[in-house]
Amino acid sequence: MCIAGVGDVELQNRYNEILAELTQDAGAYDVHGTSASWWTIPPNNQRKDEIVVGRVSKSELKALYSNYLAGQGKPGRSIYDKLLGAAPGERCPYCGIGRVTTLDHYLPKAKFPRLSILVTNLVPACRDCNMGGKGVAVATTEGSQPIHPYYDANRFNSAQWLFCAVQATKPATVSFYAEPPAVWPGPVKERARSHLKAFDLNARFSVEAAEELSNIRQIFIDYFSGASPAERSQHLLNMEGSESRLHTNSWKRALYQALGRSQWFCDVGYL
């Protein structure tokens, strides 16, 4: 469909010549996905005008995405739009808070141009995760790879690894950190920590949490003024339970859990 949007017949022919090889790349990518071994794929450091595969240059491979998949009015644009609309609730699967506005290349097309239009390498993402996230960084170990929403969802949603710490300040402040289950293999634990770091999620979640802390404070003042610390704690833990059934590792689940377990916050820290 991307090639159908190319007006230059000579370029069309050169693209058609490499279809089989790009299809092989797609199969290899899927194999790497089952073992989280994308980091072993060598990055391409050629200049933009150098030939990468067949008679097609690096810049022409990248143009398959920018001009013929993302390009408005091109046949491939329907695939782009379908991928863009695939995220549940239009929420970015990398962070869970941003609204999807673009597609992110899990392996950046600047370093992996042969994967520029591979749908399993294209993730609907918010602007912050796409522009200010992992960027063009290339993982050099299994543990340094961010979580892939398509291949890793079952593993990383199977147990809680995102937690929150409460600081006894006035007003109360929080921070977020990764603490994967002890039974997880070392590289898997490190991937959770790498994901948090790559997308600067502690800072971004803390901004979201600040508003929620204000809401909780007001609720406690208005409706729990005569309640005991234990009753406030139970309310927060009930909120955690509801959130955990929706999202195992959401910042809200971690926040409610930490606040509900904080005797200081439930006693006087919310004031």
Rank of each mutant, 00 (worst) to 15 (best):
G5I: 03
V9S: 01
I18D: 02
I18S: 05
E21L: 04
L22E: 02
T23F: 07
G27E: 12
Y29H: 11
V31D: 04
T34Q: 14
S35H: 13
S37K: 09
I41A: 13
I41L: 14
P43L: 15
R47M: 05
K48N: 12
V52A: 09
S57K: 14
K62E: 09
A63P: 04
Y65A: 02
N67E: 15
A70N: 05
G71L: 13
G73T: 12
G76N: 00
G76A: 05
D81N: 15
K82C: 07
P88H: 09
P88M: 07
I97F: 14
V100N: 08
V100G: 13
D104E: 15
Y106E: 11
K109D: 14
K109C: 05
F112D: 09
V123E: 01
P124L: 14
A125P: 11
N130Q: 07
M131E: 07
G132P: 02
K134R: 09
K134P: 10
A137M: 08
A137N: 07
T140P: 01
Q145R: 04
Q145C: 05
P146T: 05
H148K: 03
H148S: 03
Y150N: 00
Y151I: 03
N154E: 14
F156N: 02
N157A: 08
A159H: 02
A159P: 04
W161T: 01
V166T: 09
V166S: 12
K170Y: 08
A172I: 12
P180Y: 09
P181N: 09
W184F: 10
R191Q: 05
A192F: 03
R193C: 01
L196H: 08
F199Y: 14
N202G: 10
N202C: 10
F205M: 04
S206A: 15
A210F: 04
I221F: 15
I221S: 14
S225L: 11
A227F: 05
S228E: 13
P229G: 03
L237D: 02
M239C: 08
E240M: 03
L246R: 10
G260I: 08
G260E: 02
